Amino acid sequence: MSTLNTSSEKSLAPSRDAKAEHALQLACETLQIEADAISNLKQRLSGGDSSAFINAIHLVLHCKGRLVISGIGKSGHIARKIAATFASTGTPSFFLHPAEAAHGDLGMVTSQDVFIAISYSGEAGELIAILPILKRLGVKLIALTGNPHSTLAKLADLHLSVHVEKEACPLNLAPTASTTVTLALGDALAVAVLDARGFKEEDFARSHPGGALGRRLLTHVKDVMRTGNAIPQVKPDTKLSSALLEITQKGMAMTAIVDHDQRIVGVFTDGDLRRLMDKPLNFSELMIADIMRKNPHRIGPEQLAVEAVEIMEQHRINQLLVADADGKLVGALHIHDLTRAKVI
């Protein structure tokens, strides 16, 4: 009986065949090779290649035109990503296909531009073919290659090495480690330029208005606040019963109390009402001025909506009054307004 149980347990136990083990080993080796390649790039960048990299930062940073990035094949895919990274971090940039460039698209390049050419061999025919035109235009050329003695490297104003000891491909043929290193170097250059340019979160948001960060950093209080008749408000001499009617009608679970000049003097919320219920008061005769909370929290219409979220979270409130520079009521915010605007 025990023998049958043991046999059953063995049959249910997960197992890997030799092919699966080999595939997993190869995957781990690939990651290690690419990690080592980036580590070697880091060492070169902090050593002999540092001056070229710093000069590249200077060229891109002081470019009066645009950054044009080009490559063919796998290098072209990497070039597209690098161009997109630069464009989204404050450097006007675009990808130019070298084959299309030779058939008219070079008209997009001006003498004010900086051109980054990517080719691991440094001998890509499509890139070499357009170099004379770029030189004639006076375009500054940065080459990213794995061969400092290549045609592209020799003709460039600056050469940045993306050399790797070997590709992760078992045949040492398919661009793997070399494309990873090239992309990493492009990211490093973009981040260095970003920092030197003083690029901030707000700048990033302007390039990404459709994203969550864009909504958070580009949405102002005035964009989402309630205005006009939608603002619950009463005067200090209003009876509690009338104030409660205003709260109910406007659906914000609170009302602002303003003087005759429309300046905010207080606020009264559903929470304040619940706290009053335990007190022996004559509710039919109460004036809102007698029970309102004075000097309520407020925010300006030009402030960012995320600042309103911060105030609400800090003080554990769900509503916030909006006042102008003179303290006059111009709007009101409920936490739901910010949620609908996807600020939170």
Rank of each mutant, 00 (worst) to 15 (best):
K166E: 12
G331H: 03
T238M: 09
D105F: 04
S93E: 06
L213R: 05
A205K: 06
D237Y: 09
D261G: 01
L281Y: 06
R274W: 02
D49M: 10
I311M: 10
I69Q: 05
Q249M: 12
K64V: 01
V343A: 03
L173I: 14
A124Q: 03
P98H: 12
I291H: 04
H260M: 13
P236A: 07
R44M: 11
T30H: 06
T89V: 09
Q233A: 15
S161K: 05
L320W: 07
L160A: 05
P280I: 07
H208I: 11
I264F: 00
D157K: 01
T145W: 04
L189H: 07
A305P: 01
Q25L: 13
A289I: 04
I257D: 04
G73Q: 03
T91I: 11
L273D: 04
G146C: 04
T269K: 02
N318G: 15
N147I: 01
A129E: 14
A18G: 00
D113P: 01
F95Q: 04
P92G: 08
E246R: 09
V258W: 06
A205W: 08
H297F: 15
L333C: 06
V181N: 06
A253T: 10
L245A: 13
G331R: 01
P175A: 13
H163G: 00
A325E: 15
L152G: 02
G211C: 11
A87R: 01
T248N: 11
V322I: 12
E9Y: 08
L59R: 06
A332S: 14
V309P: 00
K294N: 09
E167F: 02
G146R: 02
I288G: 02
P170Y: 10
S161L: 07
L217A: 05
L41A: 06
V221A: 05
A52Y: 00
F86S: 02
V258Y: 04
Q32P: 00
Q262L: 12
K279V: 09
K42T: 13
M312E: 09
H103G: 11
A37W: 02
Q262C: 08
P148M: 09
V309G: 03
E100Q: 14
E202W: 00
T179Y: 04
K135C: 05
I299F: 01
R197L: 15
V258T: 15
A56S: 14
M108Y: 11
L217G: 04
D278Y: 00
T269I: 07
L171Y: 13
A325T: 13
D36T: 07
R275K: 13
I299G: 03
A124H: 03
F199W: 12
M1Q: 12
I288N: 02
G104P: 08
T182R: 00
L67G: 01
H77R: 00
R215V: 08
G104Y: 10
H163Y: 14
N40C: 03
L96F: 10
K81S: 07
Q25W: 03
P296H: 10
V224N: 05
A13Q: 13
